[in-house]
C-alpha cells in the first residue's frame, strides 16, 4: 500500500457555537485521488481551509510525511507542498499566464535586491511555454496572453499545472468543475488523472458523484462536521455513497429505487 503523505488526526474547530470540525481524522495516500464529499455545510470547506492555512484548528494534529506540522498561512501550506485551488480565486486575470505561473515565487537575477530584483523573464517564458505544451486541454495557449482571455477549464488547468510545476505533494481542488461545460469538465477530469499518474496526490472536493466515480480512488464523506464514511470507489456503488452523504438508509434507497422502477 502506498505511504501516507498527509495525515490529519482528531481535528476540532468551533465557530462560536458551531462545531464545524468534530474529531476529523483523515489520510491522503501518495498518488491517489481522494474525493471529499458532503452536503453544503457538512464541513468540507472548513476542513480544506484548515489544511491550507486559512483557519487554525482549535485542536488536533496535522502530519506531512509523518512529520508533525503547524500551518499558519497560505505560504506555510505551499512550502509544505499543499496547494489549494479554488475556482475563482487562484489566478490574477490581468496577468499573463506565464506571470501567474510564477506569482509569489518569481525567479530573479540579483536576488539581493529583494522585491526590486529583476525577474528572469526568459526563464519564466520558457518554463511557461513548456508547461503549456503539456496542458493545452482545448487548444494551444500563448504564455504571454492574459488569463482573462481563458475559459474556466483552461484556468483550472493552468492553476493545477502551477501546483504541479512547484512539486506540490497534495493538490486540493475545490469544486474544479463548477460552471464548466461538458467538454471542459471532461478535460479537467482527464487532467486530474494525469496529475495523479505524475505522482501527486489529489483531494477532490465536489458535489458531483459521477465525477467522483470517474476519477477518484477513494472517497470520504462528511456530515455535520464529522467524517461519517469512507469508500474504496472500485468496490462501492453510487447509491451507497449517496446514502452516506444524505444520511439515508441504503436499504430504504434501494427499495425506493425498486419501487420507482416497478411502478413504471
Amino acid at each position: 500500500m502506498a505511504a501516507d503523505i498527509l495525515r490529519i488526526a482528531h481535528l476540532h474547530k468551533h465557530f462560536g457555537g458551531l462545531h464545524a470540525l468534530n474529531d476529523v481524522s483523515l489520510v491522503v495516500r501518495e498518488g491517489e485521488v481522494l474525493a471529499l464529499l458532503g452536503d453544503n455545510g457538512a464541513g468540507k470547506s472548513t476542513l480544506i481551509k484548515t489544511i491550507s492555512g486559512v483557519h487554525r484548528p482549535d485542536s488536533g494534529e496535522i502530519f506531512v510525511r509523518d512529520r508533525q506540522v503547524t500551518i499558519r498561512s497560505a505560504r506555510d501550506a505551499i512550502e509544505l507542498g499543499i496547494e489549494t485551488i479554488h475556482q475563482d480565486t487562484s489566478l490574477a486575470p490581468d496577468l499573463s499566464i506565464a506571470r501567474n505561473l510564477f506569482l509569489g515565487r518569481e525567479p530573479t537575477h540579483m536576488s539581493w535586491l529583494g522585491v526590486l530584483a529583476p525577474m528572469r523573464r526568459d526563464e519564466i517564458a520558457a518554463a511557461a511555454t513548456q508547461l503549456l505544451g503539456r496542458v493545452g486541454i482545448t487548444k494551444r495557449l500563448d504564455a504571454a496572453a492574459p488569463v482573462r482571455m481563458l475559459s474556466g477549464g483552461e484556468r483550472q488547468s493552468i492553476a493545477i499545472s502551477r501546483a504541479m510545476q512547484f512539486a506540490a505533494k497534495v493538490i486540493i481542488l475545490d469544486e474544479p468543475t463548477n460552471n464548466l461545460g461538458v467538454e471542459e469538465t471532461n478535460g479537467v477530469l482527464r487532467f486530474i488523472r494525469e496529475v495523479r499518474d505524475a505522482g501527486h496526490s489529489v483531494v477532490l472536493v465536489t458535489h458531483n458523484l459521477h465525477h467522483v466515480f470517474q476519477v477518484a480512488d477513494r472517497a470520504v464523506v462528511m456530515r455535520q462536521g464529522q467524517i461519517v464514511a469512507g469508500f474504496d470507489i472500485a468496490l462501492s456503488s453510487m447509491v451507497e455513497v449517496e446514502a452516506a452523504i444524505t444520511g439515508a438508509d441504503v436499504a430504504e434507497l434501494l427499495a425506493a429505487g425498486a419501487a420507482a422502477q416497478g411502478g413504471r
Binding site: H86, S90, L103, M119
Partner: peptide
C-alpha cells in the same frame, strides 16, 4: 521587477495573490 508582478497581481485579484 518582482515587485511589479506583485503590484499587478494584488490589483487584479488580491485573494489569488495572497494565496
Amino acid at each position: 521587477s518582482k515587485a511589479g508582478n506583485w503590484i499587478s497581481a494584488v490589483g487584479s485579484n488580491r485573494d489569488a495573490a495572497v494565496a
